[in-house]
Write a protein that binds this DNA or RNA. Structure first.
Length: 596
DNA sequence: ATCGTTCGCCAC
DNA sequence: AAACGTGGCGAACGAT
């Protein structure tokens, strides 16, 4: 009989492990099987019945499994589906008003048996060093000594399946858990495959911007020259341009009084030193954050390999650890270059968050505005006399909770013209201000207020429409400020987290479709190599680029249907095939108003 | 010296 | 023109 699910426990030392076939509810079918070579046994079962693999934590198991699978089955070295207990646990805890409790297998096991619950270990950089012989890093499960890991896995999984079924909306919960687990697979594979990174292009860029690579830790020539010129322009006294306090003092001595050294303030300063400092800061940041040292650490052998943290952001967005994977500066995008004979398929979901708002609220005016393609232009036509920039500013202000200044006025216009959409975000804000929690479309729950927040706001009344300028009351000034701050958070959460739901469904579907594309050369298969909130990059043999493009479009459509059901709102993906990320995304500076 | 906090910039 | 959400990261800075 073909098991629908198979629980996996690796042995602590050596390549073996045990497999436990399960039915969909998590009930064991036959006895566990011990296998001497776990990766081989899993590859075999994957080919035969492609079960959903149940394991404690994808980042600890699958990353170690990938190279072994690649050795054995270069043509099909990926597993299709998994259930990640450690990713699912916090989702369920959130739905059960137990947000933030420990998520490890050991913690879930302890809760199941009324034992003391161990705190989670701090998540360090992945245990890449040592221990090459075991599929597991040194045991991070936190199970009590003597507990059989496979038994615990099976029990906790069955309990999670029961909790999913018992949740208020099991269908959505099941989808959320499956998507989060699929995200775990994608993250591990992206770390394994890496983002193609051209050292030569990177070097050329650095040379143009900074000059030749300095020896040791010395300052690059162009940076040093700028620092010198800046010092001269500010009177000639020794000056560290990286020290805000020194810079403020030096400008003050020139008769220029600044409150900060931020770019937006410096841009309005009429003094020859200001443009020099702006340029210095720009180059200095490139050098410090993405210079030669960065490349030596993170982008070796033609691949940038960061570590992605699935669900690392409360909204369900991913975070990254090391290398700043989610903040690659636009100016360096040219260094992302496909291998010879390969292409990058770059797709981003334009105007994702306002479209999510339209779909969730079912606001007829917003739906109309988005129907023609450019939602901001549609909004402008409906309510802003065609002024697209003001429409965009107003809508972003509404989703971020802006109330002051000119943007506040724009938000007020939107509230009149799109009451259903604005009502949704306003309701989320009110819930947050009152200390409540809100959920994404698929049911990801936002963190509840901290004890400190509750203390601070105790007894304060919630703000209302009349208090939008933020005056609060004399007695409750801090309380009102904290309440409004939480309101902005929950207001944004419902949108950002639901956008993350959609994006997760997108990459899960795209991963599945990429695996199904027939390939000419075993192993030369399209790979997801980058994912950043509303944007993906697939690295593919050139002749498969069109198939990848189609897979992207189908996955976007599937994500819309899965997450938002029958909504008329579309989530178009702007897709480009190119050799470099820069070519796919266009210019470095000006024309960048189209993407979000 | 080492640690945690603040500033400021990068991405969405 | 500059307070408006989520993050990572590096240099400066101040405390230990």
């Amino acid at each position: 009989m073909a098991a629908q699910r198979v629980a996996v426990a690796a042995e602590q030392d050596g390549p073996g492990g045990r497999l436990q076939p399960l039915d969909e509810s998590g009930t064991p079918l036959d006895g566990p099987v011990r296998v001497p070579d776990l990766a081989a046994a899993m590859a075999e079962r994957e080919a035969a019945e492609s079960p959903r693999w149940v394991w404690a934590a994808t980042d600890e198991v699958y990353g170690r499994l990938l190279p072994r699978l690649a050795e054995r089955q270069p043509a099909k070295n990926r597993l299709a589906r998994c259930h990640d207990l450690k990713l699912v646990e916090p989702l369920l805890l959130g739905l059960e008003d137990r947000y933030g409790q420990p998520r490890s297998l050991g913690a879930a096991w302890a809760r199941l048996h009324g034992l003391p619950v161990p705190a989670d270990l701090p998540e360090g950089p992945a245990a890449t060093d040592s221990d090459q012989d075991s599929l597991f890093a040194p045991d991070r499960s936190l199970l009590p000594p003597g507990t059989d890991p496979l038994e615990a896995l099976v029990a906790v999984h069955a309990e999670q399946q029961r909790r999913i079924a018992a949740s208020a909306e099991p269908g959505r919960t099941r989808l959320l858990c499956a998507a989060e687990s699929a995200g775990g697979l994608v993250a591990a594979e992206m770390g394994f495959d890496g983002l193609p990174w051209s050292a030569r292009v990177h070097d050329d860029l650095l040379y143009d911007l900074l000059g030749p690579r300095p020896r040791g830790g010395a300052q690059p020539a162009k940076l040093a020259a700028l620092a010198h010129d800046l010092q001269e322009a500010l009177g000639g006294k020794p000056l560290n341009p990286d020290s805000p306090s020194q810079v403020l003092r030096a400008f003050a001595e020139q008769g220029v009084s600044l409150t900060t050294t931020r770019n937006w303030e410096l841009r309005n300063v009429d003094h020859p030193a200001a443009p020099l400092l702006l340029r210095y800061k720009e180059l200095s940041r490139i050098h410090a954050a993405h210079g030669w040292a960065w490349r030596d650490t993170w982008a070796r052998d033609g691949r940038f390999r960061p570590e992605y943290v699935v669900g690392g952001v409360v909204s369900g967005r991913w975070a990254s650890r090391g290398g700043g994977a989610l903040q690659i500066p636009r100016i360096l995008r040219g260094a992302v270059v496909a291998d010879p004979g390969w292409r990058l398929v770059v797709a981003d979901a334009g105007q994702l968050e306002p479209r999510v708002l339209a779909a969730m609220s079912n606001d007829p005016g917003m739906i109309r505005a988005g129907a023609a393609g450019d939602l901001y232009a549609g909004l402008a036509a409906e309510a802003f006399k065609g002024d697209r920039a003001r429409a965009k500013l107003g809508l972003l202000g509404a989703m971020y909770g802006q109330t002051t200044g000119e943007t506040g006025q724009l938000v007020a216009v939107l509230r009149r013209r799109f009451p259903q959409a604005m009502g949704l975000v306003e309701a989320a804000a009110r819930t947050g201000e009152a200390g409540g929690v809100v959920r994404s479309q698929l049911g990801r729950v936002c963190p509840p207020p901290s004890a400190g927040w509750l203390d601070q706001t105790a007894g304060a009344f919630t703000t209302d429409e009349g208090d939008l300028d933020g005056t609060g009351t004399a007695a409750g000034g801090n309380a009102a400020r904290d309440a409004r701050s939480r309101g902005r958070f929950t207001r944004n959460f419902v949108i950002q987290a639901s956008a993350a739901d959609w994006a997760l469904a997108l990459i899960a579907g795209l991963r599945r479709r990429l695996a199904a594309i027939p390939v000419d050369v075993p192993g030369d298969r399209p790979r997801l190599v980058f994912f950043q909130h509303d944007e993906v990059i697939v690295h593919t043999p050139a002749q498969l680029a069109d198939a990848v493009r189609a897979a992207v479009a189908e996955s976007g459509e599937e994500a819309r249907r899965l997450v938002f059901g029958a909504t008329p709102v579309r989530f178009p993906l702007d897709t480009h095939v190119a050799v470099s990320y820069l070519d796919a995304k266009g210019g470095s500076d000006d024309d960048s108003d189209e993407e979000d």
